[in-house]
């Protein structure tokens, strides 16, 4: 097998950067990260590379290989024409620390601005029940390994200088996972529209193209969120419908997949419950197996509204056969 020539980005902030060429012997199954380790071991011990698991699960080794954002531990050298040099650069959307290592701490700051998972305080965690179909969408988003390749390739973060912030595809995925969760009571639509800057996304799908976990970021996360924001702010028919129903918030009604049974009614929370069970609540029922309770979603102002009493008709509904493949 011929040697590979790697042109590796070298530089420090404030200095003139350069590409250094290295000849690396290629072995069967070798990935770009192996080649970088070979360079560290044989030619440039001061080469800065961030890596951890070498299994495409920690998301540490993101870089741009021949201009394409990639995990270097998942990118085989033999995928390239070894007669041509292979270019390895850091993720260009982020400030440089050294060589192939960039400062991605901005992402962690953005993450803290998202309203976290907000289950109802009056439903003990042991009473949460949902079926596979309710969480399939969320499970896709939970595959994210936070490699930030999608943030790197997003042209809004990479090329634009916007007046207000844009959270980027990674955090739109996180927000979608929370918004679509059947137990979540939060409302992040105003945040998405204003602070998150979802309007800056013009859905060019580059994030989807580079995702190593093959999450359909644009189709399954960003566009559904854009549609939810449109429901709340850009759809006069839905606004009129909400007025008609007397719901001043976003109008989305959340039905909670929770257990209604003797234990829930007795206010007997499981040891791991995050909040005490309410003696009288929308889900407390003296009898009956797991069924769903309905409650209004919080308004756009994020102020909690008092929960209405349970709808009697729902409690009287016969239980459905449980066919769920598991709960989580």
């Amino acid at each position: 097998m011929p040697d590979a020539q790697l042109n590796v980005f070298r530089g420090l902030p404030g200095e003139k950067s350069r590409f250094e060429a290295f000849e690396v012997p290629v072995e069967e199954g070798m990935v770009v990260l192996d080649a970088l380790h070979w360079i560290q071991g044989h030619a440039a011990p001061d080469l800065a590379v961030r890596w951890n698991c070498k299994a495409a699960k920690c998301g540490s080794c993101g870089a741009e290989v021949n201009g394409r954002p990639s995990l270097t531990c998942k990118t085989r050298l033999t995928d390239y024409d070894l007669d041509e040099p292979i270019t390895v650069e850091p993720m260009r959307a982020f400030p440089l620390i050294k060589d192939l290592v960039t400062d991605v701490s901005w992402n962690y700051a953005v993450n803290k601005t998202i309203e976290p998972f907000s289950p109802p305080a009056d439903v003990p965690q042991a009473d949460w029940r949902w079926q596979q179909r309710d969480v399939e969408r969320v499970q896709e988003f939970r595959k994210c390994i936070e490699c930030f390749l999608c943030q790197d390739v997003c042209h809004v973060l990479r090329n634009h200088e916007t007046d207000s912030a844009f959270m980027g595809p990674r955090f739109l995925v996180r927000a979608a996972g929370l918004e679509m969760h059947p137990m979540d009571q939060g409302n992040r639509r105003e945040y998405l529209k204003d602070s998150g800057g979802i309007g800056y996304c013009n859905i060019t799908k580059c994030c989807t193209e580079v995702c190593p976990e093959h999450i359909k970021i644009t189709d399954n996360a960003i566009i559904p969120l854009k549609e939810r924001v449109a429901d709340a702010y850009y759809d006069p028919l839905q606004w009129a419908w909400r007025k008609l129903r007397g719901n001043e918030g976003t109008g989305a009604r959340v039905e909670l997949p929770v257990l209604r049974g003797p234990r829930a009614a007795a206010g007997d929370p499981a040891p791991s419950d995050p909040a005490p069970a309410a003696a009288e609540g929308p889900v407390a029922r003296a009898d009956g197996p797991a069924v769903c309770a309905r409650r209004p979603r919080r308004s756009r102002t994020s102020e909690p509204k008092p929960s209405p009493p349970a709808v009697g008709g729902e409690a009287a509904r016969p239980p459905r056969r449980r066919r769920d493949r598991g709960t989580s």
Partner: peptide, 26 residues
């Protein structure tokens, strides 16, 4: 939850200008 403003991303080192890239393919 009180809304926390999203910080603006600090500048990176991406080459700017139409067509600027190190991608090799067409």
């Amino acid at each position: 939850m009180t809304a926390i403003p999203t910080p603006i991303k600090p500048a990176g080192t991406a080459p700017q200008g139409m067509g600027a890239t190190t991608r090799r393919e067409a």
